[in-house]
Amino acid sequence: MEIKLSNVTKRYHKGMRNALDIEDFAFESGKIYGIVGQNGSGKTTLFKSLTTIIDSFGEITYDGVNVHEDTTPLSKVGIVLDDLTLYRNWTGRQNIEFFMTLKHSMDISRVDELAEKLSIKGDLDSKVGSYSLGMTKKLILLIALIDDVQVLILDEPFRGVDRQSTDALTKFIKEEFMSSDKIVLISSHVANDIESMADTFVKLDKGKIVESGKLTLTNYKVKTDQVEEFKTLLKKKDVPYENNEQTFILRGIEDDDWNKLLKAAMTAKISFSNINKISEVEEVLN
């Protein structure tokens, strides 16, 4: 599966700037994309355009099929939007049955399996109105995954969800989608959530894709009084760095190399007043 966007634009009101303005970009299978950007950068507009929830201009193709002309490929898309709600007067199971009817799905064993993994099996017969936000999001995720989806879109899936549920959801999505030939797009305002799941990031700003690439997760920010000694050590170990007074930023270091560097610094009696692993997503966002 490949999703291609060509000259995709969306403007909500005349006279305003484009909420989305993507000239050419492709989402490739086997990758988990973290979509980052400030509020209003176009993340939700991108997701809604990809699924035709909003009417955008340009060409959006799934394996060559333009979804503005033929929506069939969308049957392989699961989506969890931040503002989605379900029938509150129905039970979780009734909501699932409704979507199974809509999607022509028959595999009830898949529902049980997913509910078990998401730890909501025992709550499926309660009314959705009594669910916590975390449970509701789990149920929406379950509905999104009823079919064997090829593309999963998650817009702020963890907003308002407690840490325990976030961890459970993260674990579940990683198990289901990591190392698969599927595409996952996830946005979150919490950098750690993106980093713990995504292997590739796409940065949006004012509707445009301004940066994209792989997430390395191995950047460090250290502070030392022994600036010259540490510079010498870094040069000796051939580690690239950025330096500003007592602060050093080291990018793209493997864990082993980092441990060796720390050991060498101890031997050279260099001490650090501060060591921080930098969130690459936060870096990108800033």
């Binding site: 809604k48 699924t51 035709t52 929830i53 929506t71 069939t72 490929p73 969308l74 049957s75 392989k76 898309v77 989506i79 939007l81 503002d83 989605l84 709600t85 379900l86 029938y87 509150r88 409704f98 979507f99 809509l102 999607k103 509905i143």
Partner: peptide
């Protein structure tokens, strides 16, 4: 009201 329309359209239902 309950966004089911969005989910239906996003699931490939022709408008």
């Amino acid at each position: 009201g309950n966004s089911l329309l969005q989910l239906s359209i996003a699931s490939g239902t022709s408008r």
